[in-house]
Design a protein around this nucleic acid. Structure first.
Lengths: 349, 349
DNA sequence: TAGTGGATTTGAATCGTTCTAATTTCGCCT
DNA sequence: AGGCGAAATTAGAACGATTCAAATCCACTA
């Protein structure tokens, strides 16, 4: 094998064509595996491609063909393992389909999201997978991405109304059913005084989970005390701080809590000690997400598995399907979540 | 404001030019903020741009200018919070400099890495930031990326020799010093039987950390049993699986373990239960990376802080500097790491 | 020998932008 | 009115691929 030159100009189709005495068009046909070209010629060209160390310029091809080979992935918080897994799943599926992932991370700020979308869209992605920032608004997002690029929304709804001509696909988690399943599990364990702990009610995912909890309580004919709803930032530290409110109310103290997510649940378990209780023994706890830590905490956490990597693959599949058939009616997919029973949800003693 | 058409062809410079009776060239000048164009004309053009909902086609511009506005980021394991943070840092800095991040994740397989690099390079990134797979080889990587694209290597060395004409930059962690510090801390806590747990010896980062450990042991005149070196894939699950080997050897059982990284350390802490030990009480553990989880686990994890987000920013800066001056001599930066003492490294009881 | 038809090959236009060199416009001075 | 330089604008050729229609090649046949 001849060595490719260590340094120099980029090799183009013209160089190859000149190098083996055929036309640019023929080389192009060889590259794309066309059956039109003669076997001998093909071999000659392929040898030359190798010899000169040719690398395909997909941008030029896309320009001519008015195609795209990329998809933008915009994540509100990449550092969160849930979203990192999601991103890995997206990239895996897109890569297998020959697409490259354009990454954008917004730090959960609608302002940065707007800037990031504006920058990504200029690179002409075939579509966008967007996990919106907390305060992201439909109108602004639409202004940034325009109406030519299909969008798959993940995990959260946007604020405000989306015009009816923008038919975007959605992939959401079954928040209500998940929270209801967790609550029913608590009830089956004999608990009657069950709190809903953590999250902020202005986020759609929190509201949905709280709704599921209320459904289960109502279906079982159980009353709900107002001080059993404690809000917090969905982080471990803030949850630990908020534990006091759970036992500060005038009515009966809860013996169990359905938590907004795993982070909050872990924080709650931590904070319980200071109130003379121990999760999994005299106070039952469930989470949401099944992050890696959930199976390793002490006690291990009963929670709802969301399989973020599978969700990533699914979101990518949805986008690919949309690219294949842009006219298909858009839809919302609600991914099921599964209750994983571990040690933290002890029966009422 | 006139509404942009909800559907239709993509708007180009020609449309804008025709729309307000100037030439394509003038519109281009307006876009790029050239001082050459008359104030009134500029206003007219800008209005038209808005009216038609123009979006810039950066790919076409890059083609013409023989420029790139993207950087490829290839990560061996995105699901690991350490690398997720790193990726977030890279994206943050690249985005601020007007570059977009092309993401590739390899699942720590050299084969997939090769495919991913081959695909990414066709999109013409200005450079590549590569955190290599464990068994990645210099020769193969070079074949995939060619010699025209600058590379910043992060975290690990490649196997084999890199030809001298490929001068790639490197950003490494001070693995040896970090692991030595952790080991010395263990020794100061009174431990004498200290294992080195996790990772594979064929990866350079593992070897360096193991070297640091050995240095500390030797300096303290402590013997090392062969079964105190347990290898594993650097994931939590595989680490948990491998715990048995730690106590299976013929000689003395260790009372402490310096771990390859935090993921492995958390896995070890989990696995310890099944062997009747508890981390932070009768078995001391240290990690490496200081991922977010480390401070929240029970017990909290003594580890080496590597500030992955800052490392990501740093890697991006290195690449940007290289793009600014391709001729500058290439170099290796070794980022310091800092021992963070928490609960998991209990004194010998 | 000329004609036929399938197999190959190729010239030239095109995608949306940039950039050079040239052209046009315009105010102002003599 | 003519000339001049500065300011503003533009025509047209790139960039590196694809694609269509047209040209060429090459047995064979009549």
């Amino acid at each position: 094998m001849e060595s490719q030159t260590p340094v120099g100009r980029k090799i183009t189709l013209n160089d190859i064509a000149a190098g083996c005495g055929v036309s640019r068009a023929t080389v192009s046909l060889v590259l794309r595996g066309s059956p039109l070209v003669n076997k001998a010629t093909r071999a000659r060209v392929e040898e030359e491609l190798r010899r000169q160390g040719y690398v395909y310029n997909r941008a030029a091809a896309n320009l001519r063909r008015r195609t795209s080979s990329s998809v933008a992935l915009v994540i509100n918080e990449l550092a969160n393992p849930f979203f990192a897994e999601f991103a890995a799943g997206v990239d895996e599926t897109l890569g297998a389909a020959g697409f490259v992932t354009l990454l954008g991370s917004t730090g959960d700020s609608a302002e940065r999201e707007h800037a990031v979308l504006g920058s990504l869209i200029e690179h002409g992605p075939g579509g966008i997978i967007l996990s919106p920032a907390e305060d992201s608004e439909a109108r602004k997002v639409l202004a940034a991405v325009g109406t030519h690029t299909p969008v798959v929304l993940f995990n959260r709804e946007l604020g405000g109304q989306l015009p009816e001509y923008a038919h975007w696909d959605r992939l959401m988690l079954d928040n209500a059913r998940g929270a209801r399943a967790a609550t029913e599990h608590m009830i089956a364990q004999g608990h009657r005084h069950i709190a809903f702990f953590g999250g902020h009610d202005h986020a759609s995912s929190t509201r949905e989970r709280h709704d599921g909890y209320m459904q289960a309580m109502k279906a079982a004919g159980l009353p709900v005390e107002t001080h059993w709803r404690v809000q917090s930032t969905p982080t471990r530290t803030d949850a630990a701080r908020a534990v006091g409110e759970l036992f500060a109310g005038p009515g009966a103290a809860p013996t169990a809590a359905v938590c907004y997510n795993d982070a909050v649940a872990l924080g709650l378990m931590l904070g319980l000690h200071q109130h003379g209780r121990q999760a999994g023994r005299d106070f039952a706890v469930t989470g949401f997400d099944d992050i890696a830590e959930a199976s390793m905490s002490m006690p291990s956490l009963t929670t709802l598995s969301t399989a973020p990597r599978a969700r990533g693959r699914q979101a990518a599949e949805m986008l690919l399907a949309r690219l294949r058939d842009p006219q298909a009616p858009s839809g919302t997919t609600v991914a099921p979540v599964e209750l994983v029973v571990r040690e933290s949800s002890n029966p009422l003693s």
